[in-house]
Design a protein around this nucleic acid. Structure first.
Lengths: 340, 340
DNA sequence: TAACCTTACTCAAACGTTTGCGTGTGGATA
DNA sequence: TATCCACACGCAAACGTTTGAGTAAGGTTA
């Protein structure tokens, strides 16, 4: 099992110094053409590849972007990663992905691990637990050590850094408006508990849309789902004998679960009840009926986040810090779950 | 913006040598208790974290596992990653994920990049293009440089290394048998073109099951889908006026698309046609009707793959090489898309 | 032939760690 | 007071790379 070949070994074989080899490989004029060719031939033969670790240590940069997301088995987050990878690869950066699994502790561990040498900067969406605890010391610390952080989707207002978000409120308003424009009057919302920032923002958007139409929001039309894994039960009870003509769900899962429940309760989508979801994932696309939904343009978010980060990474050191918040436009995708 | 603190800085502040600081932090008896406490207090105050890069260089190992998958926006692969992460984190390993995007070139680039210092070993599922090209030099090279590789799901028979797979043929046979046992006689299969190894294996399993039931397979019951993104058209034409009572689809997407097409053609699932899919993803679970399918136990695959890799990584150097192929059992998950 | 310039290299430091070995100081022993 | 030992610490090399500065050999110029 041959080991990886280093400059030192090439130098020894060719009976020159390490620096000569290094310079020869870089086509330095300092080195004679003859030697250059010899070294290169040898390097090629032995398939020499410079050791990234040594380079990172020397250059004090890793050319690696750390991405930390709450869940890896999640369509939206993976599309964002897709966008990040696109830009990163173009600009010669590597991407390390870690999942916090929505655990505060794991988020801290991952961040600290990556921060201690593995990545130059971070793109992250915080864990649910972190949003609850409101403990952001790990992120602040990372930034104070000079590593830029870009927050996306589930951001933290208190933190001063670059951010990429969608206008959740506006998206929700668009969704609700769509239902209203179709003539729906009794619109329920399936949302999350308040500490999930995006859930709350979307709920607010829904309320604003109703107000703009002079419709009084009704408490009993709002369901804040506690346990996502068990949402079918909650939704089923909520919808039981409820006279609604439309549902706005703040995510895909709630939307399809609602469709399923309605189906079980003998109601037709969209004939009896229209549904609009949020997030344009696999489910929305392939469900029957396919779901009208709000697209968050995850890939675009990833692209923008990566660009922001790389700009910071490659920007001048002494430029006064300036942080941007990019708001990605959402768009309404009309499909079959809302009547025409 | 305070920079990251190093041993050197602590040493300077405390007016001791770097080695003293290093030893003190490791609680070496060589260092007086007094100094040890002073150093530790200082390190804590300045939040000292050893630089992983320097450690990697010194130890010639990174404690990092590289995972390369064909697609990141893919439920099955992300569940596998989930399993890998679980084991890796337990054992103190970091996980770097890269996506090849089903491109041979990107697979090569990613592998070479990670192999040149960023990871100690790899878990990988090869890109479609790689399967077509049958060019595995990058993987062979990586292994010949002493870095262990574990292949999963889309493996390469020719390569001598650890592998984790499911018995695709057996799974397909189980699926087909299930349909047969329900009394279905005219069973179509929606599969991929032959160069996708798992597609071919599953097709073979289907054929074996039919043979065991003494049913002659019919060419016109087999659809090898070329363009996945456009499968709806192909499936729709295929199913047009075809008298089938069951469909076995080799993946989730084909299964739901078939359901959609049948729905459009006015046929009921499962009353007119039963459907069994492959892969237990989001779609299968939430579709209406929910899909009977073959679960591949992705997380389990990840767990096993990570264990195999770490065993190799931490095993004795001089132990004769021995490679295992772990076969994960599939299971049939009965839901609503097949009649009772 | 002394002074100088090119050419083609080598040296050494640096990045941040770890660790075996060397060493100066002080006290205890003979 | 000479010898020894323990203690507490520093030195230096190593991991693999880059790069500015130094240098030897040979040729050119005056």
């Amino acid at each position: 099992m041959k080991q990886k070949v280093t400059l030192k070994q090439i130098a020894k074989e060719l009976d020159v110094s390490i620096s000569t080899v290094s310079k020869a490989l870089k086509d330095s004029v300092e080195i004679s053409l003859d030697t250059r060719q010899k070294v290169k031939a040898f390097a090629k033969l032995y398939n020499y590849k410079p050791n990234n670790i040594a380079l990172s240590l020397k250059n004090r940069k890793t050319k690696t972007i750390g991405v930390i997301i709450p869940e890896i088995v999640h369509h939206f987050f993976t599309t964002v990663i897709g966008g990040v990878e696109k830009v990163a690869n173009e600009k010669g950066y590597n991407v390390i992905i870690c999942s916090s699994n929505n655990s505060f502790d794991k988020e801290v561990i991952n961040l600290e691990m990556l921060a201690s040498g593995s990545a130059d900067g971070f793109i992250l969406s915080v864990a649910k637990e972190t949003q609850q605890k409101k403990d952001y010391h790990h992120i602040e610390e990372t930034m104070s050590q000079g590593m830029p952080v870009v927050l996306f989707d589930r951001i933290i207002d208190e933190l001063v850094c670059d951010k990429v978000i969608i206008d959740d409120g506006k998206g929700a308003q668009t969704a609700t408006n769509h239902l209203l424009s179709l003539g729906c009057k009794k619109i329920a919302i399936l949302t999350t508990v308040d500490y999930i920032s995006v859930g709350k923002l979307r709920t607010n958007g829904y309320l604003r849309a109703l107000r703009a139409y002079d419709i009084t929001a009704r408490e009993d039309y709002i369901l804040k789902i506690e346990d996502i894994d068990n949402c079918e039960v909650e939704i089923s009870e909520f919808l039981q004998n409820k006279d609604v003509d439309a549902i706005f769900a703040v995510n895909e899962l709630f939307a399809v679960t609602a469709a399923r429940v309605l189906n079980d309760q003998g109601k037709k989508v969209p004939d009896d009840v229209s549904i609009v979801g949020f997030t344009d994932g696999i489910l929305s696309k392939h469900f029957i009926p396919s779901l009208t939904t709000i697209s968050q343009h995850g890939e675009e978010m990833g692209i923008r986040a990566a660009k922001l980060l790389i700009d910071k990474l490659e920007g001048e050191e002494d430029v006064p810090e300036e942080y941007k918040t990019v708001i990605i436009d959402t768009s309404l995708i009309q499909r079959q779950s809302t009547k025409k």
